[in-house]
């Protein structure tokens, strides 16, 4: 029996029995040491005039820019970003949420069916596999043509990007099922539908969560690309707009915001995953 061992076969770096976000103070300190040192170095380089301010502003300038972006009174001055950080993050996050939800709603059922039925796999899988190599950036013109410069375009791109890892991992999870579990369910009178919902789906969940985490990463990439090109709000829009007007401090503050948003959403997903997959914690196989 695996009870008592703390190793886990759950998706990614899951950790149990730790503080929220799976981090402890000591771990946090260790994780932050290197980036902090680099920031100090960068700050020093900036102040010594060794690096031109307009191209790579030092962290302190970035921090000031972020403060203004986040908290300043919007009515003031010529800076169009004042006080707009929270709604900007909100636009991007809500697009990610919508596109990701669409990707799950299509990707998980599709993956279960493809993994379960050879007939469905033969008629659907080749199409999915041949569309998969098309990068989301290549979908941009199509997306703009169909949805225009609107929210839907971004949601579409995100959904496309997140769909592939979700469907592929769900398929793998549905295929990888112990034959005797299926036999046991049939022996106990489960219908095909019950078999899919009560046996194949839960059995695929660990693999599904792996796909969700990969998909969420792609979703953040997709939202930035879409907002740079096809939507007039959100972190991607600000990123490109700030670059055009030479506000590299805002550009970097924006990049850091994207990083943090992506990190936090991944941690949230990991938290849900550990909750849903609590039965994996005893780690037999």
């Amino acid at each position: 029996m695996g009870a008592g061992t703390s190793s886990t076969t759950g998706p990614g770096d899951s950790v149990q029995g730790r503080a929220l976000w799976g981090l402890r103070a000591a771990t946090v300190a260790q994780a932050l040491a290197l980036p902090l040192a680099l920031c100090l170095l960068w700050e020093a380089a900036g102040r010594s005039g060794w690096m031109p301010e307009g191209i790579l502003p030092p962290p302190s300038t970035v921090w000031q820019a972020w403060l203004a972006w986040a908290f300043a009174d919007p009515g003031m001055g010529l800076n169009p970003y004042l006080g707009t950080w929270l709604p900007t993050v909100g636009y991007s996050a809500s697009r990610v949420a919508k596109g990701f939800a669409v990707a799950i709603a299509i990707g998980v059922p599709a993956g279960i069916l493809i993994g379960w039925s050879r007939m469905i796999a033969r008629s659907v899988d080749p199409m999915i596999q041949s569309l998969r190599p098309i990068p989301i950036t290549a979908w941009l013109p199509f997306s703009i043509a169909v949805f225009g410069i609107r929210d839907m375009g971004a949601v579409f791109l995100i959904a496309i990007g997140a769909f592939y890892p979700i469907v592929v991992n769900t398929t793998a999870g549905a295929r990888d099922i112990n034959k005797n579990l299926v036999r046991a369910a049939r022996m106990m009178g489960a219908s095909e539908r019950q078999l899919l919902l009560r046996v194949v789906l839960p059995n695929a969940l660990p693999s599904i969560f792996t796909g969700l985490r990969l998909g969420l990463g792609i979703a953040w990439t997709a939202v930035i690309v879409a907002e740079i090109v096809a939507v007039k709000s959100g972190l991607g829009y600000v990123l490109w707009d700030a670059y055009y007007v030479g506000r590299m401090d805002v550009v970097i503050a924006d990049m850091v915001s994207i990083g943090i948003a992506g990190f936090l959403s991944d941690r949230l997903l990991l938290l849900v995953s550990n909750r849903v997959l609590h039965w994996k914690q005893f780690g037999a196989r």
């Binding site: 005797n180 036999r183 046991a184 022996m187 994996k280 037999a284």
Partner: peptide, 11 residues
């Protein structure tokens, strides 16, 4: 049916 390996649903 009782299987040789128990075939219980681990979840």
């Amino acid at each position: 049916v009782v299987f040789q390996e128990p075939a219980l649903f681990p979840w």
